[in-house]
Computed example of a mutant assay.
Amino acid sequence: MASTVSTPEATRLAASGTTTKTGRARRKGPYPYWFLLAPGIIYLVFFVVPTLSSFYFSFTRWDLFTSRWIGLENYRTFFAEQALVIGLRNTVIYAVLTSGLKVVLGMALAVLLTSKIIARGYLRSVIFFPVLVSAIGVGITFTILMNPEKGLINTSLARVGIDGPGWLTNPSLALVSVALVDVWKGVGLATVIYIAGLVSIAGEYNEAAQVDGASRWQLFRTITLPLARPATASVITLSLIGGLRSFDIIWAMTRGGPGFASDVIGSVIYKQYQAGFYGLSTAGSVVLFLLVTVIVVPLTRWLNRGED
Rank of each mutant, 00 (worst) to 15 (best):
L101N: 07
G266D: 05
V85R: 00
S115M: 13
V138T: 12
A209P: 02
G17R: 01
V5G: 09
A202H: 07
R61N: 13
Y194E: 15
E9C: 05
T143K: 14
S99A: 07
P130N: 01
T282K: 13
L303N: 02
T191H: 02
V296A: 14
R245F: 01
R301P: 15
L113I: 07
G137E: 01
L37Y: 03
I162V: 02
V268D: 03
R27M: 00
L240Q: 13
V264T: 05
V92A: 02
F128G: 00
V286E: 05
V211T: 05
K28H: 05
Y205R: 01
Q272G: 01
V111T: 08
R305K: 04
G139I: 05
G203Q: 15
V192Q: 02
Q82R: 01
S58G: 09
A25H: 01
T237I: 04
A228E: 09
N90D: 13
A95R: 12
A15S: 13
I136V: 09
S177R: 11
F35W: 06
A110V: 08
V199L: 09
V181E: 15
F46W: 05
L64N: 06
N90L: 00
M1F: 13
D63L: 04
I241M: 10
P32G: 03
V5I: 09
L198E: 02
T77Q: 07
K185W: 12
